[in-house]
């Protein structure tokens, strides 16, 4: 963890999220501001987090003056891998960042298309080789129906 301070002149912004995003942009960092990583300590000092794959910034809002303290925590390779998985659709709300923020979206799209291609090719092979076999219908039927039945069971029974 590294600690640093930055002198910022942030105007009064009543909306909490907008204030946090203004601090983030003024600091020149990028990431989203989760609402649950935000608290006021026993001394009445406001702390919040800006997070992005690979880093977390815990920011302490000054009670007086305009020096913001930052605890910068590197989270490592696995955290990046895990966080990028659901971010395939893009990093909306992460602010202005370096070029690779949008690059991930471009990479994830062909990967998703390859997976769809796998589905199409599988159906094709199955149709060519096994369409007329009863055993093949039973196996495919079981494989497709099992998760559907499971989902319906969880929905209806809990």
């Amino acid at each position: 963890m590294t600690q640093w301070e930055q002198h910022l002149n942030i105007p009064d912004i009543p909306d909490k999220l907008e204030f946090k995003l203004a601090v983030r942009d003024s600091m020149g960092i990028f990431g989203h501001a989760p609402w649950w990583e935000d608290y006021i300590d026993s001394l009445g000092v406001h702390h919040f987090m800006i997070g992005r794959p690979g880093k977390r910034y815990w920011i302490t809002v000054p009670d007086r003056g305009n020096i913001y303290k930052v605890d910068e925590i590197r989270t490592g390779f696995w955290d990046v891998l895990i966080q990028l998985h659901p971010l395939a659709g893009g990093m909306r709300g992460h602010g202005k960042g370096p070029f690779f923020i949008s690059a991930w979206k471009i990479i994830a799209l062909p990967m998703a298309l390859v997976l769809l291609g796998v589905m199409v090719i599988t159906i094709h092979f199955w149709y060519v080789r096994s369409f007329k076999k009863r055993r093949s219908w039973i196996i495919v039927g079981a494989m497709v129906l099992f998760p559907l039945i499971l989902l319906t069971f969880i929905w209806l029974v809990g």
Binding site: L115, L116, V118, M119, I121, T122, I123, F125, W126, I139, V140, M143, V144, F146, P147, L148, L151
Partner: peptide, 18 residues
């Protein structure tokens, strides 16, 4: 390769549906 693709197909179907 074919068997594993069938398993992926089953999973992807659910993943796409949800």
């Amino acid at each position: 390769h074919l068997i594993s693709s069938m398993i992926i197909f089953s999973f992807l179907l659910m993943y796409l549906l949800t």
